[in-house]
Amino acid sequence: MFDDVRDLYNKTILERGRKPLHMRALAAFDVTAKGDNPMCGDRVEVWVKLAESGVIAETGYKARGCEISVVSADLMVEAVAGHSPAATKALFSSFRQMVETGICADCDEALQPLSAVHKYKSRIKCATLPWHALIAALDGTTASVSSEGGST
């Protein structure tokens, strides 16, 4: 019955949704931030441990939300490991292009399972919420950030 949604709810998404690999709070971290989409109720909290060189050593998160936002956070943790803040922002930029348009020239392979999100306009903000929280953490933003209200 749901063959037409297998692009979004593919094997990786369903497996990770059932059993996320990286959902945990970090006891020791350098920066943290929260993402909150009040219209839909999704929330995510992100913790980042930075290496001495300034690159991301470890990322942890806790998410309360749909399969798409949880799996997006889980895949994000893998994709950004070892990235500098600038490289992380560049990756988010190409990831955002992928979930908005379906096109991604230089996306991390690990983020490909979310490439069909662009066909589900109301779900784009689910996929980008954890990224907004991560970037906010790296930027030292203390206020909760959102991917609702027109800007994904």
Partner: peptide, 26 residues
């Protein structure tokens, strides 16, 4: 085992419109 938003998306693919979320009643 299924978040309400994911339920709503799958229902939508079958032409069924329901609301999912906190219904303005947090």
């Amino acid at each position: 085992g299924a978040h309400p938003h994911d339920v709503a998306t799958l229902l939508d693919r079958q032409g069924i419109a329901v609301r999912a979320g906190h219904h303005c009643a947090e």
